[in-house]
């Protein structure tokens, strides 16, 4: 298991290097001089030159890149143009909110998705199975930002049971978390249904039923845990999409996380914050990936036991 984590970390470092280098290139190939764009038409040449310097956009490209890597290593992306705070501090301060949202959504998606799959797998191709698969298709196809608005319409404006946007109380988390959870609920339900149905055909499930367990008991007590490995693996691969979804959903609900920050920063061309946010998002995705790997390993005693030995 340690070697697996080591491999993951190596890939992670590589991915972060790749993403940040992509950012470095993009900012430099984007049309228009960032300093001029930021300062507006009335800026003096001295001001522009000073800002170009601060942005790390002066000098030749190799020097710029080396300076950029140094920034990365020290986590110093410079100050935000809008607020004057260090970009990395600004980004870090938003991280807990995004973490809260993604965790909330993951819990909901896992609970609902797994429950649906357990109901569906009891009788493959039965009535419940068909209903579940229809729900999954709908959940996956509906755009989250629209679902979010519909939930606001129904629960905040018509029924008045939840706040419509913002953050602060646990009630504020409900709608954004449900919204973000929907497509992942569908994914989890679909994959888990498939692996559960397969596991139900395994001889050890027959053994369990031969011991007098009902279909449901065999499903929950024997098939379930063994079916979760592939589910966790595939859900792990969806972590990027989860964080991407969070970025969009935050903007629907004015949730003060990384997503609203990065969209605002892109809109106002706050490059330092954009770079810091991209870096932190990449790091966040990789951390979640690692968590998925570890959960997966813990599920399978054939891996776990060897790790303990």
């Amino acid at each position: 298991m340690m070697s697996m984590i080591g491999r993951r970390l190596a890939v992670g470092v590589f991915v972060i290097w790749g993403v940040t280098t992509l950012m470095f290139v993009l900012i430099r190939v984007a049309p228009g001089d960032p300093a001029t764009t930021l300062l507006g038409p009335d800026a003096t040449p001295e001001q522009i030159e000073a800002l170009t310097e601060r942005l790390g956009l002066s000098g030749n490209i190799v020097e710029q890149y080396l300076a950029y890597l140094r920034q990365l290593a020290t986590l110093d992306f410079g100050d935000s143009f809008r607020t004057g705070q260090p970009a990395i501090a600004l980004v870090s301060s938003r991280l807990p909110e995004t973490l809260q949202l993604t965790l909330g959504a993951t819990v909901i998606a896992a609970a609902v998705g797994l429950t649906l799959s357990l109901l569906a797998a009891r009788r493959p191709d039965g009535a419940i199975d068909r209903v579940v698969s229809t729900i999954s298709i709908l959940f996956q196809g509906m755009p989250t930002f629209w679902v979010g608005i519909m939930l606001i319409l129904i629960f905040a404006l018509v029924l008045r049971v939840t706040p419509s946007s913002g953050a602060g109380t646990p009630a504020h988390l409900i709608l954004p978390a449900i919204t973000l959870a929907l497509p992942f609920t569908a994914i989890i339900a679909r994959i888990s249904r498939a692996t559960l149905t397969e596991a139900m055909r395994e001889p050890y499930v027959q053994t369990a039923r031969a011991k007098g367990l009902s279909r449901g008991e065999a499903l929950r007590n024997h098939a379930f845990r063994n079916a979760m490995g592939p589910v966790v693996t595939i859900v792990g691969l969806q972590v990027g999409a989860l964080v991407g979804g969070a970025v969009v959903v935050e903007n629907v609900f004015a949730w003060p996380g990384l997503g609203t920050l990065i969209v605002d920063s892109v809109a106002s061309r706050d490059y330092t914050v954009v770079q810091a946010a991209v870096f932190v998002i990449a790091l966040f995705v990789l951390a979640l990936n690692l968590v998925a790997d570890i959960v997966n390993a813990l599920l399978d005693p054939r891996i776990r036991v060897e790790a303990n030995a």
Partner: peptide, 23 residues
């Protein structure tokens, strides 16, 4: 179901497959 395991029990061909790998 009440008879299964208590009145009639079964042994399968492949003991590795017949045992739950995670228990």
């Amino acid at each position: 179901r009440a008879l299964r395991g208590r009145w009639v029990a079964m042994i399968f061909q492949d003991p590795l497959a017949a045992l739950n790998p995670s228990q």
